[in-house]
Structures are given as structure tokens and as C-alpha cells.
């Protein structure tokens, strides 16, 4: 079992010794039972760190944010950053390292093994509680999640498999392979779903039905861009499909601005949103590490993870490629093998 005190001590130690400028972790949120991200800079604050099944966020996002801030700063603070990372989160760090976003020594990975469980899916939990809100969610043994309900403080223990996020049910690396330290046991056998279970299920539907489903989802998209904003891999300074982010520097000419391509319009209609989501999915092929954040944050519950895991599955089945597993490996998109069947450079 993960002892949260050990995490706190470790984080406090890092900060005390000045080995990191900050530690990214989870603390109790003010709004509900769900934990929220925090950035600790003082050893004394480490006591606020928590570890429970509501530690959903992939904090690697904040490594990206820090890197962007330091790049923009006149006096960058380049000391390493500590990050509390689940198995999936550590793979995100791995991809960022593969893509040279920072160096290994810039980050101290405080790995946490999800052991036999994982984190809850707020939507599944909400369905379970018939729309009511949970006020407390904790681990209960190896395969249980204990939940208290808002307005009715009795505790219920729910089998983990019923409320765990799909990605956790399909997880193959519950313990972070990339780490400076790991808390919790590395549990090999996890008797939940096979990898890519949800994606395979979705494939079993006829093409027409699949199209109808996605048309329905793209039509509902609000284009709030939370899926992109929360994704640690979506660190591009300018998103190719969207006009809400773009790079204008003093050197950007009027011509460049005038010629800026609008691959998709601002209108949140089916076709424009399809372009947005499909382009994003393609750009994440071989990069997505299935932290499921895009799907989790979607306010209208578009099952975005399916798009990404589908491509992750293809990458795995066709090229045995797993993003973020080997930081020395060339990215999927940029590597080719001599025995690849199609002529590559013609």
C-alpha cells in the first residue's frame, strides 16, 4: 500500500535540500471530493499532499507549463521540478523527454504505483450515484473504493472495477517505469480488462453506426479546447487547427499574419469540430500515453479517449510501439524500418 506520509517526507526532503525548486502533487480541492493539482515550493507545505483515487490529473502538463514560463522569463529558474506521477503520467514525462522538451535531469519523478486499482472515472461515479456528488472518495483495500455521498454522509464501498476509469482497467503499467523513486508495490497481474478493450469494443460496430456516433459527438463539441489545454502533449506554441492560439512575435510580418491558415473555422459545427478532433488524434498518434485527461475534462462527455487509444492500438499492433516507454527511442512518426512494406521516400 502507498503510504502518503512517505510521499510527503520525500517531497519535503527534496525541497529542504534544494534539489528541486518545486514539487507538483495533489491536494484536497476546495470544491468537492476530487483532488486538485498543487505546486509546493516549501518543505512545510508537503503535509498537504494527498494520494487517493481522485488524483486524476496528469501533472506532466505543469512541467510543460513551467518550461514555457522559463523560456519566456528573463531570469529563468532552471532548477529541477519534482512531480508526483502515476504510471501513465510517467510515460507522459517519457514522451516529453523523447521529444527533447526538457532533459532527464530537469525532472525528479516521484512515482506512485496504482497497484491493484487506479483512479476513478467521475462520470462512472456520477452514474453510480445517480447524479449526486461524492464528498469523499478513498481506497478501500486492494480492489475497493469507498465513497461518501454529498448530502448523505453514509459510506459505500464499491468494487473498484465498477468506477475505475477505463484506462485504469486497461492499464499495463500501473507502476511508473520512469522514476527517481516509486511508492507502492508494482502489481503485475491486474485482473481487469485487456489492453485496448474499449477501443476494440468500439471497432466491433458497423461503419455506419460508428459514423453516426461520432457525428453525434462532434456535433455536441463546445470547442472549449479543454481536451487540448489539459494534454501534456499538446504543447505546440500554435495549434494548427485553431485560431485561439497563435504565435505573434515582433518579427511576425503582416504577410505571415494575413496568410495564416485556417484549417478549421471557429464555428463549433460538426465538420469543423471533426477536423479539430481528428487532427488532434492524428497528431497524438504514437505520442498519446493514455492518461485519459482529454476525456475526463470534456464537459459534454465526448469519449475522446477512444480516438486516441485507437491510434495507440494501431501503433502497438503494427509497430510494437508504446509512447514514452523508452526515452532513447525515436518517435513513432519519425522512425521507419527498412523492412517497412511501403516505399518510404518516394
Amino acid at each position: 500500500m502507498v503510504n502518503v506520509e512517505e510521499i510527503r517526507d520525500f517531497a519535503a526532503g527534496l525541497l529542504e535540500r534544494g534539489e528541486v525548486k518545486s514539487v507538483l502533487g495533489f491536494r484536497h480541492g476546495s470544491a468537492s471530493a476530487f483532488a486538485e493539482p498543487c505546486t509546493l515550493t516549501e518543505a512545510d507545505d508537503a503535509a498537504s499532499l494527498v494520494w487517493d483515487p481522485t488524483c486524476l490529473n496528469n501533472l506532466a502538463l505543469y512541467l510543460v507549463k513551467d518550461r514555457k514560463q522559463q523560456a519566456a522569463s528573463k531570469t529563468p529558474d532552471t532548477r529541477p521540478v519534482g512531480i508526483v506521477a502515476k504510471g501513465c503520467d510517467s510515460r507522459a514525462v517519457g514522451v516529453l523527454l523523447q521529444e527533447n522538451y526538457f532533459k532527464r535531469e530537469d525532472v525528479v519523478v516521484i512515482g506512485i504505483s496504482c497497484e491493484g486499482t487506479g483512479v476513478v472515472d467521475p462520470k462512472k461515479l456520477s452514474n453510480k450515484l445517480k447524479g449526486r456528488t461524492a464528498s469523499r472518495v478513498t481506497f478501500d483495500g486492494a480492489d475497493g473504493i469507498s465513497v461518501s455521498v454529498y448530502g448523505d454522509e453514509t459510506e459505500t464501498v464499491i468494487p473498484a472495477r465498477e468506477v475505475l476509469a477505463d484506462r485504469c482497467l486497461e492499464c499495463r503499467a500501473a507502476a511508473p517505469a520512469l522514476n527517481n523513486v516509486v511508492f507502492g508495490d508494482s502489481v503485475e497481474a491486474r485482473d481487469y480488462n485487456e489492453p485496448f478493450h474499449a477501443a476494440k469494443e468500439a471497432e466491433n460496430v458497423s461503419e455506419d453506426e460508428r459514423w453516426a456516433t461520432w457525428e453525434h459527438h462532434f456535433d455536441r463539441c463546445l470547442r472549449c479546447f479543454a481536451c487540448r489545454a489539459v494534454c501534456p502533449m499538446c504543447y505546440c506554441p500554435e495549434c494548427v487547427v485553431d485560431s485561439t492560439t497563435f504565435v505573434v512575435t515582433l518579427g511576425t510580418s503582416a504577410k505571415e499574419k494575413a496568410n495564416r491558415i485556417r484549417w478549421c473555422e471557429r464555428s463549433a459545427n460538426t465538420s469543423e469540430s471533426a477536423v479539430y478532433h481528428l487532427t488532434r488524434a492524428i497528431h497524438l498518434a504514437g505520442r498519446c500515453i493514455d492518461c485519459g485527461e482529454c476525456e475526463r475534462v470534456c464537459p459534454v462527455n465526448i469519449p475522446l479517449r477512444l480516438l486516441n487509444t485507437k491510434l495507440e492500438k494501431e501503433a502497438f499492433e503494427m509497430f510494437e510501439y508504446q509512447a514514452g516507454h523508452d526515452i532513447e527511442q525515436a518517435s513513432l512518426l519519425s522512425s521507419f524500418r527498412d523492412e517497412d512494406p511501403n516505399s518510404f521516400i518516394r
Binding site: R223, C224, A226, A229, V230
Partner: peptide
Amino acid sequence: AQHCIGCGICTFLCPTCHCFDINDE
């Protein structure tokens, strides 16, 4: 705002947020 990701959830769901953009398509 340290952990804000700059998405549009808060404002798009808000019953009173009304900011808009105008573009030629």
C-alpha cells in the same frame, strides 16, 4: 491561476458569460 489550463469550460458553461468573436467564413 497557477494551475489554470486556459480552457473555455468555465465561461462556455456559464449562464451569464456572453463574450463572442466575429469572423468571416
